[in-house]
Amino acid sequence: MNNFLQLPIFGIGITILFYLLCGKLGKLRLFFLNPVLLTVVGIILFLKIFNVRFENYNAGGKYLTYFLGPAVVALGAFFYEKYEELRRDLKLFSISVIIGGSCGIVSVVLFLLLLEMPLFLIKSLASKSVTTPIAIEITKTIGGIPDITAGIVIAVGVFGNVIGPIFLRKLGITDKRAIGAALGTAAHGIGTARALQEGKTSGVYSGIAMCLNGIITAFSAPYILYLLL
C-alpha cells in the first residue's frame, strides 16, 4: 500500500478527484462551499484520516505545481484580453489599484510587526492579497514558506468573497467598478468570482485589478520588506 501511495499517480489522482467533486458542490453557490477551499480541506482531511504523509501526496502534487510556471505566463494573455475592455478610465483605475495594493502590503507587514510575529510569517504573508500562483512566487523570492502563503491567500480570498461587498456597501460604496476593482485587488480570483456575480462590469474590473495588483506586488514587495524590516 505504501508503495502505491508513493507513486505520482496517487497525488495527481486524488487532487483531480477532489477538484472535480468540490467543483460540483461549489455550484450550489453557498459561500462556505468555495470549491478551492473545499478541495484543500478535503484533501488534508483525507490524508490525515488515512494517515498519509504529505511527502507521499506531493510526489504527485509536485507535477501539478510545475504547471504554475506557464500558467502565470498565461495570465499575461488574460490581462491583455481584459485590458482592452477598460481603456476608458485606465489611469484612475491603475492609481487606485496601485495605492490600494501597496496599502495592503504595507499594512499587513506593519500589523504583523506590531503583533511581534516571527520573520518567516511576515515574509510568507506579505503577498496575501495576490492571486495564489503569483503569491507563491513572491514568497519564494523573498524567502518565506510558500505552503503557508497558499493556505492564507485562499482564506483571504474566501473572506473577501463573503464579506467584501457587504462591507463596502456599509461604507457607502455603490459604484460597480469600484466594488469590482476592490475585490480583485484585495481578494484576487476568489474575490473576482464574487465580483462576476455583481455584474459583468464588476467582473472585468476585478479581473484586471487582480492581474495588476499581482504585477505591482511582485515588483514592490521585496523592496517594501527591505525598507520595513
Binding site: G11, T15, I16, F18, Y19, P35, V36, T39, V40, I43, I44, L47, K48, F54, Y57, N58, G61, K62, L64, T65, F67, L68, P70, A71, A74, L75, F78, T132, P133, I136, P146, D147, I148, T149, A150, G151, I154, G189
Partner: peptide, 17 residues
C-alpha cells in the same frame, strides 16, 4: 492553463498541513 489554474496550486494549499 487558466481553466486548470486552481488545480495547479492545490498541492501548495495542502502543504499547509
Amino acid at each position: 492553463l487558466l481553466e486548470f489554474l486552481v488545480l495547479f496550486f492545490i498541492p501548495y494549499g495542502v502543504g499547509l498541513m
